[in-house]
């Protein structure tokens, strides 16, 4: 009896299905109004643009699931995005193209992971408020990136590296497949792995988790490290798409998009839930709203207001869900 009630409740969960409904409305609106919406080109553009938001939003979802938040994602994107061209444009890479290319992907992601360790240690061992702890890189990360590049725009022609942002697999953008791959891995992590179970327990009730012997510090650091690593990867994709790296602009305001996507996707800000595919759904909605307004000749500034509206609606639905 109460099982059916539980299932029914699951079925009509507004915080999850509200997002699907929103997606349906946006798609329908576009089909009716936006010219050439059903073109393959539209799909490609949207996939290649939504990928970075989705990748970062998945990492953000893990951090929020621990009850934290990560404001440094955009700055870490800039840092890794600035590092990559520095490496593959160096003399070393000119001499060893393969090694240089590998390093230009591995090193920035590694640096990003280190930033994640820093965030995680501050939040867990030093008990700094997540918003303050990640504010450190939010402020300094982009500055560091600009110092590294002397504030210059780095342009390049490197087809191998650009594959990250412009390549196609089975006719669809490479980064779309990358999102899918990461999502499948993270979904497995959240629903099946020990770490995932511990992550949700820490977010659900940290004191109980600690009492049950869960390594709370390590789990939190893990979440920040994954989030930072994914941000680093997203930074590389942005650079690859543009064939140019501008430390001042890569990942600008990404933290807000990622948080918004996670919330729209049904992540509870107080922690304890990590809907990975929800984060992707949230990212898609945010991207489509941006696209819809743009494609219909409405200024970008208005899109910001629309985004705010979506967040309000999502938070409202979350509040309504609380008993």
């Amino acid at each position: 009896m109460s099982a059916t009630v539980a299932i029914m409740r699951e079925r009509f969960d507004p915080s999850r299905h509200g997002a699907l409904l929103a997606l349906a409305v946006i798609l329908l609106f576009n089909l009716l109004v936006t010219p050439n919406f059903l073109q393959a080109q539209t799909l490609f553009v949207n996939i290649s643009q939504v990928a970075t938001i989705a990748i970062v939003a998945m990492g953000m979802t893990l951090v929020i699931a621990t009850g934290g938040i990560d404001l440094s994602v955009g700055a870490i994107m800039a840092l890794s995005g600035a590092l990559a061209p520095l490496i593959f444009l160096s003399d070393f890479a000119a001499a060893n193209p393969t090694l240089g290319l590998t390093a230009s992907i591995v090193v920035p992601v590694f640096v990003a992971l280190c930033c994640g360790i820093f965030n995680g240690v501050l939040v867990s061992f030093l008990n700094v408020q997540p918003i303050v702890a990640t504010l450190i890189f939010f402020i300094s990360g982009r500055g560091l990136a600009q110092v590294l590049t002397n504030g210059n725009l780095q342009t390049f022609t490197n087809p191998s590296f650009s594959y990250l942002g412009t390549g196609r697999v089975l006719g669809l953008p490479f980064q779309g497949w990358l999102v899918l791959l990461i999502a499948l891995i993270l979904y497995w992590v959240v629903t099946r792995s020990i770490f995932g179970r511990q992550l949700l327990a820490v977010g659900g009730n940290e004191r109980a988790a600690r009492l049950s012997g869960i390594p709370v510090h390590r789990v939190k650091i893990g979440a920040y490290v994954i989030c930072a690593g994914l941000s680093g990867l997203a930074g590389l994709i942005v650079v690859a798409i543009n064939s140019a790296s501008d430390a001042a602009r890569i990942g600008n305001l990404m933290e807000l998009d990622a948080i918004a996507a996670a919330v729209v996707g049904g992540t509870l800000l107080q922690g304890g839930r990590a809907p990975i595919f929800g984060a992707i759904l949230g990212a898609v909605i945010i991207q489509l709203v941006k696209y819809t307004l743009l494609a219909n000749g409405i200024a970008d500034e208005v899109a910001l207001i629309a985004k705010a509206g979506i967040i309000i609606a999502a938070v409202y639905l979350q509040q309504a869900r609380k008993e």
Partner: peptide, 19 residues
């Protein structure tokens, strides 16, 4: 405050300490 993880199922709550 120290015991249950409210969002989690009975199953997940029982096995929490023995993961």
């Amino acid at each position: 405050a120290d015991g249950i993880i409210p969002h989690m199922s009975v199953r997940e709550n029982i096995t929490l300490a023995m993961l």
